[in-house]
Amino acid sequence: MVDGTIFLTLKRGITLTNKIFTLICLIFLIAVPVFSQEDEPADDDYAGIAAFTRGEQLFSLNAGAIFPLFTLAPFHEDDEPLVGTLSSTHTGVSGSLKLGFFVRDNLMLGGELAGMYAATDNSSLTMIPITFVTQYYFLKYPFEFPIYINVGVSMNSFDDYFRITPLIKPGAGAYYNINGEWALGLNFDYWFMPELYFNTYKNETRIANFLQISLSGVYHF
């Protein structure tokens, strides 16, 4: 019995890991040609910049907290509420890596690999979004005010459940340039994740909503 349990656990874990790995490879295969289109980086020190110009790139590290907000039930029955709570989910931690390049002045395209973890009353929730990001900067040196929208998928795991859902993640930030290359700042991201069913589980369709607040370190190059 013990051996069987271990085998099943390993089998389940290996299967899940393989699927995640395959998906990550797929996304990066798509993303690599995008990043390969970059021009030579601009040869200046970025100090006093009035605009990010085509060919410049950035890499950012983000870490923060994520707050469960609520769910929406678009196919709810008459006796069921449209808005549900995520009260069993505790405030979690989140982080991400973002790589982008400017395709025109102050307009950046890129990709982001993120992750979050939150304990729930009896288990835990883990989500790993992989998204394509479009970001626009408003600049008033030494401050940057990016607004952005991420579109992609999120691999979500909760106890024995594993689902891949679409993810739309609009957000905004405020950064301070501490020198010509580095900026530090704060981000607010809204996670909007529809989990859609059109079969027997139609009434279990939910659109989950989370708010992420994170600190960022941004490197321009």
């Binding site: 989910t89 729930t120 929730l125 909760f158 106890d159 459940y161 594993f162 279990e204 939910r206 659109i207």
Partner: peptide
């Protein structure tokens, strides 16, 4: 079934 649904019901 739904992951977020189960999360909501937990």
């Amino acid at each position: 079934g739904g992951l977020f649904y189960s999360l909501e019901q937990e």
